[in-house]
Amino acid sequence: MDSPSSTDITAAITGSLAEERHGGPHKEHAVILLHGLCGSLLELGSIPKQLKKVGCAVIPMTIDNYSASLTNPRVSPNWEDWCAAVESKVARLREEFKTVSICGLSMGATLALAVASRSNELLSVVLLSPVLQYDGWSVPWYQNLLKVVYDAGIRNWSYKESEPYGIKNFDMRRRVANALEKDGVAAVGAASIPARHLRAAQRMMAYVRESLPMVRANTLIIHSIDDETASPKNAEIILQAISSEVRKVIWLGDCYHIITVDNEREIVTNETVMFIKRGIDLHGNELSRKYLAHSSPLKDRRQ
């Protein structure tokens, strides 16, 4: 499969931003996109473009002290501010659109879960490589010492991204490495993540682990069995703990953590779009049934 070009990605993002301004072709269905911690919209690959093709208004979000372009390593962010930004966006979109869904990657998926646990306004959530804890095979042993080091006051450091950058595809990995060296950001996110942001993410993960039963929106989880950042256990815990009537998990066998740009990216995109579209269709059918059930019976005009 060919890797998505920078032109395709830029076009998808530009089109997505236009959709946000104009409300989409039918102003009926909106999908919020959340990238990973200190990442960018490049991480979402071809998902924005394909969602737009099926008639969804695509709403990519950048968040203060969460997105790479708005990150200040000297600021200690509060994960609840990240959550509040998304909740506010959901509330505004619900005034314009019939349904609102969220698709998040990595920590963006965790953020989507945090919002879904506190909101009944979401139709569907798509969780791509969700993280409840950093327990993948490439996570260094000293990762668990982050809290101790941070709480001891040592906070002016960053975690630097390294091989394999969440990507199994060798050619794509090489391009990512070059982009990180040149620009400091690539399709996998930023070249480094500040300690303050990692600590905020840890606190959000702890909240989400306790709040999973509050999630009731339709939920799709797509996770690699070889995820080097978050083991399959993360997806299994979510699947078992949430209260969603509609829940589905898809396991991938030929990619690492950043599944949106790796070897099975087409599967990820297609399954994401189909799940959201199916949720919209089911929602429409449910509204029709409710309307018929509560409509007044026709009068017999023969009398």
Rank of each mutant, 00 (worst) to 15 (best):
L292V: 05
I13R: 10
G39C: 11
Y165N: 01
K160Y: 12
K52R: 15
E80S: 05
I280S: 04
K147D: 00
V249G: 09
S101D: 04
P232Q: 08
A191D: 10
V115S: 05
S67G: 11
N144I: 02
E266G: 00
H29N: 15
S88K: 15
M172N: 10
I63N: 09
T219I: 12
S67F: 10
S16M: 05
S40H: 02
G136R: 04
K49R: 06
V131T: 10
K233C: 05
S69K: 07
S295T: 12
E161H: 11
R196F: 05
N169R: 12
S69Q: 04
E286W: 02
E271K: 13
I102P: 03
S88D: 15
K89N: 10
E28R: 14
A114N: 07
A116R: 05
K53P: 02
W157R: 05
L33Q: 07
K98Y: 02
G45Y: 01
N156D: 15
V261N: 12
A109P: 06
V149M: 03
E80W: 11
G184D: 08
L282T: 09
I242H: 02
E228W: 11
T99Y: 11
Y291N: 08
K27H: 02
S192Y: 07
I193F: 14
R199M: 12
L41R: 11
L51F: 13
R278T: 03
L105N: 05
S5W: 02
A116W: 03
A84V: 14
A191P: 09
K89S: 06
L145D: 10
L220N: 03
K290L: 13
L146H: 10
V148D: 10
Q303S: 13
E161M: 14
N270L: 02
A18E: 09
H294S: 14
Q202I: 13
V215S: 07
A200F: 06
P25L: 12
I225Y: 06
L132C: 07
D135K: 12
K52N: 14
A68N: 14
Y66G: 05
R209W: 12
V58C: 02
T99K: 08
I154A: 06
R203K: 10
T269N: 03
D227W: 08
I63F: 14
R209Q: 14
A85F: 15
S129T: 05
Y165H: 06
V90Q: 02
A11C: 10
A190V: 07
L127T: 04
S295Q: 11
D226L: 14
Q303G: 06
S69H: 05
L239P: 11
S158E: 04
G104P: 01
S243Q: 01
K182W: 07
N270W: 00
G136P: 02
D262K: 03
A30Q: 01
E181K: 12
G15I: 13
N270H: 05
K248Y: 06
I32L: 09
G279F: 04
I238K: 01
N169K: 09
H35I: 07
R74P: 01
S244C: 01
H29Q: 01
I280V: 15
S231K: 09
E20Q: 08
M205Q: 14
P164L: 08
S5R: 02
G184H: 10
V215F: 00
I193K: 12
K182F: 05
E286G: 00
R173P: 08
L44K: 01
D183R: 08
V268A: 04
S6C: 01
R199P: 00
V188S: 12
